[in-house]
Structures are given as structure tokens and as C-alpha cells.
Amino acid sequence: MSSIKYLSAILILVGLSTCGAKNLQEQNTLQQTAVQLTDKTTPVVNKNTATPKEEEEEAIALPPKAPLPSKKDSTTAETFNHSRWDRILQKHVSNSGEVNYDALRNDPSELNIYIDALTHNTPTDAWTKEAILAYWINAYNALTIDLILKNYPVKSIKGIKNPWDQKLWQFGDTWQDLNTIEHKILRPMKEPRIHFAIVCASISCPKLQNKAFTASTLEIQLTQATKEFLNDPTKNELTKDAVQLSRIFKWFKKDFEITGSLIQFLNQYTDFEISESAKANYKDYNWNLNN
């Protein structure tokens, strides 16, 4: 009888142990499930109390910003401000293009400041073609006036020794002269109307415009300068069957034939049609100073 009681006691203890183990296993399972659910839930961070480390980790999770466009691709690339040159022209150049060299000589400070600014802000690859053209057209005209002032009084630019080959101005690391600007920089840009915008300080040259050229208005300004020059009877005489032209059209004939004949170029800017068979002659060139 005592053996039966002993055996019963053992069975009861085994049962209790089994139940305890089962309960412990169930508790562990519930705890693991809770942990997994917690891990899958996005924590809410109170930004008012978040630590710098938490803010840093949150920023990393944001999508990256779109890359900024390079300067070359940007439509707002920085260009040169020609307003000082515009003021100089308005003050010292008449509507018909005569230059008051005496006044400029007596007060050259504004011109010197403008040229100094040009030499320290040369065009880059980021500039548009229009901005580069405007820059070098204005530079050519300003340097031509500066050349005259350095040799003033003078009756003609041709009275100066090698006027177009004098390397008087340092642009960045390069010393520039007028010939280089015209023939190595401007003409290769294949815009023939530059010949009516750059001025060699002479009566037979196109008139010096008393407004600075700018990138935003360049097309209008070049067209206006071309029409004014062609319609000036002291520079050109045009009829349907014959033309008496400035020698500019002879010296730079190839520039005006980039897309067609010389007559075709002229017809773009005249109020009547010049015949392709029109006879062309060239006027004498007056190199006297444009004052």
C-alpha cells in the first residue's frame, strides 16, 4: 500500500513539471511574438525630444535630392554686366556715332574701371554664344577708344603704329590686341553682323552704337546695326541693279557668304530685292577719326 502511494506521488510531481514546462514555453513564445510585432512597428519620434543621433538617422532615410545642373547646362549662367559701358556710351557718343574723345580724355576713370572689369572677368564655357559675342563686341569697341586715348590727339587710327597689333590689355593670362579679338575670337563664331557692331574709330566704319550690346537684346541690336549701316548713303548705295558697297564687304566677303551669296545676305536687310546679277563696286574708305 505504501508503494502505491509513493508511485502516485511521483506521477503527480512529473505531471506538475510537465505543465510548468509547457506554461514556460508558452510564455516564451508570447514574448517572442511581442518582440517581433514591436520590431515591425515604425517608432514615432517626437521631434521636440529627439536626440541629434535620432535626427541624423531620420535624415538618412529621406530620398536623395535631385542633382543640381552643372554650370554649363544652366540657363542662368553668370555673365558680364555692361551697364557701366552703356553709361559711358550714352554720355560720350552721339546718336549718329560721333565720339567725344576730348571729354573722355579729361575723365577716363569710368572707361578704365570698365576695361579693368573686363580683363578680370573673361567668358567661360558656361556662357551662351550671345553673351560671349556681346562681351567681345563691347570689349573691342572699348579697347579701340582706349587705344585712341593713349595716342590722343590723333587724326586717324592709322596714324598709330601697328594699331591693331598692340598687345596692351591683359585678359586673364593672355595679352590681347584688336586683331586677335576680331579675327581669332569674333569671326570664327560665324556671325557676319559683327562687322557692323565693332568699330575702328573711323568715319567709314559703322557708327559706334551709343548703347552697350547685351546677350538678351543681341539679335535685335545686330539687325538694327546692319540695317542702319546698309541704309546709310555715305557708306553704301543700293539699287535693284547695282550696288556701291563699303569695302567691309570686300575685305570680309567670305564672312557674308557663309549661307549664300553676298547679294542674298544684303537682301535680308533691304526693303527691296537686289538682283543676283547686280553689279558691285566698292567705295573709298575714310579713315579719319569718328569725332
Rank of each mutant, 00 (worst) to 15 (best):
P43Y: 09
W85S: 06
L7H: 10
T180R: 12
G20Y: 10
N179A: 08
L13A: 14
L245P: 11
P188V: 09
L178N: 09
N46F: 07
F252N: 04
Q170L: 12
D232K: 02
V154N: 08
N112S: 13
K253W: 00
V243G: 03
L30Q: 14
N179Q: 11
C205L: 08
K161C: 00
T124D: 05
Q224V: 03
T18D: 03
S17G: 15
L168V: 03
P206D: 05
V45D: 05
F249L: 04
Q166A: 13
Q31T: 12
F80C: 02
G260W: 00
C205Y: 07
A280F: 02
L149I: 08
Q25H: 06
L218F: 04
Q221G: 01
L16W: 04
D107F: 02
L262F: 01
E98A: 12
I88H: 10
I12D: 04
W85A: 05
H195Q: 07
D165V: 01
I88L: 13
I258L: 12
A66T: 08
K22P: 00
S156Q: 06
T119E: 12
F196C: 07
F272K: 04
Q31W: 04
D39F: 08
S275H: 07
A278H: 03
K279H: 09
K250F: 05
T180E: 07
L208I: 04
C19G: 06
Q264C: 00
E56K: 12
K158F: 08
